[in-house]
Design a protein around this nucleic acid. Structure first.
Lengths: 119, 119
DNA sequence: CTGTATCCTCGAGGATACTG
DNA sequence: CAGTATCCTCGAGGATACAG
């Protein structure tokens, strides 16, 4: 299946296209997490969306899925090499954002739900 | 109006959220362009979408709009300081993409419609 | 606990016609 | 040439129930 893009930047926009992917990746930069943890951390996400987006991230090689054969089931997700190199690059974006927000939206018109300078 | 984000990276994803914005910005990195030029360059975009996305890019301070009072009308769009600093940062993303595609999709499974290493 | 299967809503984006 | 106004489609994403 051939995929076509207008420019190289769109590839990444595509990888992060889902409504929740950036958010999921953000938590995974802090370390591996199992499904239930992510469901709790990513506030507001539904079961369906979580599974779907994780599947896509895995397919795209950004996230690794490890299944522990036990009862009750346990599945752990973590960043792959590709995943962590991408999030590292996204750090630049974060820096740019700091500046942008400071200049265009001083005085708290823009709010971040993490206080960690994350992703 | 207060805007809320889960992490800083999402701000940029939001700025580029429209289906065509990255593509439009890409052409503007090559220099200012008037409406009709963009309509021709951004293949497949409709009149409506072009105006809409440009309006949003302008509102977000990434693109400047200059009107020439003449008949027939002439409007020219260009990158602002914010706009060109962002596209500069996106260059990092482009580099990452080169690598990613090379490793995960060797042999032309992924195609770019510009041959210019753009955006 | 993790994941699948359905059904439904809603808005981004396309097509087309029209104004100045 | 540049932009607005309508109408319509379609799929991403939400809610819920169920399975292993």
């Amino acid at each position: 299946m051939k995929k076509e893009f207008n420019n190289r930047c769109e590839v990444v926009l595509n990888l992060l296209s889902g409504k929740w992917k950036a958010h999921i990746l953000y938590f995974l930069t802090k370390g591996p997490a199992r499904t239930s943890e992510l469901k709790r951390l990513v506030t507001g996400i539904s079961q369906k969306m979580l599974t779907e987006q994780l599947k896509e991230l895995e397919r795209d090689g950004l996230v690794a899925r490890k299944v522990f054969n036990q009862i009750p089931p346990k599945v752990e997700y973590s960043l792959t090499e590709h995943g962590s190199s991408l999030t590292k690059v996204l750090g630049e974006i974060v820096e740019w954002t700091e500046n942008y927000v400071e200049q265009r939206h001083p005085d708290g018109e823009v709010v971040f739900h993490d206080n960690d300078d994350g992703l």
